[in-house]
């Protein structure tokens, strides 16, 4: 299937040179998080990505950052990024106006194992902004619903106002063979859902561990505990995948910043099997 194959290299541009994309739309998701739709140059390979991959987004005069692609992998008209404003470049990205130009490089990195997961159930565990890199995988499953069994999405956020894609998330839960559960650290008076860490939700999940593939993205501490908990619930580490984050300047293994033990997160990751990354998750300041 063409979607899961490596994107074709029709235009060969120097690897550090961005393509020029145009902002189509900026949507406010929460008080600090925004979703940008960016139109790449027509037919440019920068738009052909696999779920879980990331781009390097560049703002003129400010800098460049790795951002996961959060949109539909089968939409080639524009690329979607969900960005939390936490620093100079992210602030400049979320305050762009439609029509403005942004540099795009990529896509980079490994993808969620959606081909390998065919015929199985999918357990998606997201924390905070970690739902963004997982959303393309969810879109893929929903488009090819017959290829997969159950879809379970567990989502943990700090508070109800920090939860992303709330309408969409609720709609996923209405679909057949699909279960969604959200939990927050601080509920507030109007929240009637779960309160607590996302690992506490596993007991509410209805699925067979022996035919389940788990995909995790969120704070490292959450992934560490979720990975262990899923293992103890019978999902082997080889079928648990997680997406790592490190400082990245180049995305192609030249800058050295994203090293994590033997790995370059930019090209050996960001998606790793738990078996591969587990020994390094426990090493503080590695």
């Amino acid at each position: 299937m063409s979607l899961l194959a490596a994107p074709p290299a029709t235009v060969k541009r120097p690897i550090m040179q961005p393509a020029v994309g145009r902002v189509l739309q900026v949507v406010k998701e929460t008080h600090d998080t925004f979703t940008l739709n960016i139109e790449p140059p027509p037919g440019d390979p920068v738009a052909r990505f696999r779920p879980g991959q990331f781009s390097m987004l560049y703002v003129h005069g400010v800098g460049e950052l790795p951002i996961s692609i959060s949109g539909d992998p089968e939409c080639h008209d524009y690329l979607t990024y969900t960005i939390r404003s936490v620093g100079q470049v992210t602030y400049q990205l979320v305050t762009r106006q439609p029509g403005e130009c942004i540099g795009l490089r990529g896509p980079f990195g490994t993808a969620w194992p959606l081909t390998e997961a065919r015929g199985k159930s999918l357990l998606i565990v997201a924390g905070g902004i970690g739902l963004a890199p997982l959303r393309p995988a969810i879109y893929h499953v929903l488009r090819h619903r017959g290829d997969y069994n159950r879809l379970v999405v567990l989502y943990g956020g700090r508070s109800p106002r920090d939860l992303l894609y709330r309408k969409e998330f609720a709609a996923w839960g209405m679909l057949p063979d699909t279960q969604t559960l959200a939990t927050v650290d601080y509920g507030g008076v109007s929240w009637r859902g779960h309160v607590g860490v996302v690992t506490a939700m596993f007991r509410h999940v209805r699925m067979q561990p022996d035919e389940t593939v788990a995909m995790l993205c969120g704070p490292e501490i959450m992934m560490r505990y979720a990975g262990r908990e899923l293992e103890s619930r019978g999902i082997p580490a080889s079928r648990i995948f997680l997406s790592m984050e490190r400082n990245m300047k180049c995305a192609v293994g030249f800058c050295g910043h994203c090293q994590m033990g033997p790995y370059f997160v930019c090209k050996d990751g960001p998606v790793f099997p738990f078996t591969q990354i587990k020994p390094y998750l426990d090493l503080y300041e590695l």
Partner: peptide
């Protein structure tokens, strides 16, 4: 040791910027 950083260096009028690679 090959590690590098990429820095953004803008002209004063902000019309032009360079991506400069520096040893890190």
């Amino acid at each position: 040791c090959f590690c590098v950083n990429y820095e953004e260096q803008s002209s004063l009028d902000l019309a032009s910027a360079q991506r400069v690679r520096l040893w890190d």
